[in-house]
Design a protein around this nucleic acid. Sequence first.
DNA 1: CAGGCGTGGGA
DNA 2: TTCCCAAGCCT
Length: 374
Amino acid sequence: MLKMNVSVLPARFSSELLNWWLEHKRDLPWKKSTDPYKVWVSEIILQQTRVEQGKKYFDRFLTVFPTIDILASAPEELLLKTWEGLGYYNRARNMHFTAKYLVEQNQGAFPTTIQELSQLKGIGPYTAAAIASFSFGLPHPVIDGNVLRLISRVLGITSDIQQPATVKEIQQFLEKAIEFAVPEDFNQALMDFGSLQCTPGRPNCQVCVLSEYCRAFQEEKTTEIPVKKKKQPLVKRYFHFLDIECEDGHTLIQQRTSGEIWPRLFQLPLIETAQEYILRKEDFDGLMFSITGQTTPALSTYPLIAKSSQVLSHQKIYGNFYKLKVNKLNIIKNTDLYLVEREKVSKFAFPKLVSEYIRSNAYSNGLSMAESGE
DNA sequence: CAGGCGTGGGA
DNA sequence: TTCCCAAGCCT
């Protein structure tokens, strides 16, 4: 097969892309408004998140926090509860910080240049370009995973797309191309094309309007581009959660620290072990709370009532849940532990691993794994 | 700046 | 099962 030395011009790329988009553009909930608050909310939610999952959270978020003022004055607890299950929880905390900052410093208004937008916490190059174009019509190209894949294929870029120099090369091409179109249309077209046509797995290049100009297609490198470094194997961690049922209807929950997975989310009191291991009596010594008048189980045995696991982006968590029934519960030091009514536990935000357990029969009825059929 | 940060879906 | 990766950002 004759290999052509193709090189698509920015103007031609822009023209073909927009023609395709007029017939294929997606109709998504957050496209109905150019209000920077709503654009911001949608873009933060959609960071590393699939469109289908993001839709639910977008509606929920705007129902609970319809304006930036309401968001700014909301308790963090409510924000995290609204975010529960979406992951990457620092996104929510950064939004809270930025909402408070803008309300206090700028009457709740967003700045209107990409430079100022980029300085806000939680807003990086992608989100700044998205708000600048979708809300203010400014010609800044968005560069996300879709766009990196699309452009690296079109230009036949074989260097690692995670390298800043590679991103810069792609950005320079896009900054020329966006000049030939309406910026917000160009950006939306880029992402729609990347998501619908120039897919990661096996793109259908037979129907692609860019294939004539696409270097990866012409050189039969579609499956090799984009080039990306393989990720490290997951670190395994073993978490032991204590489900403490006190006779007076209280239980203990614990707030996680920042700078770790699930920052500031809640969990059942946790003991972590370095290896796979079943907790014994000695393992409870030195805890920051005391369990007195323990009835069942006997002190020598602590029954494992449920097991589960969850894969995170860099770790695999093995969760073991232990049921302890006690007469009385005291917190003996001022710690990250909270004594709460068992029925109000669901008001707090938990990682999926824990919230699943709390919704299960093991938590509500004390049924063991065998009894609950898991 | 390389590594850390969730969850869900598809191949 | 295992792997990839999805509208990224922070440190």
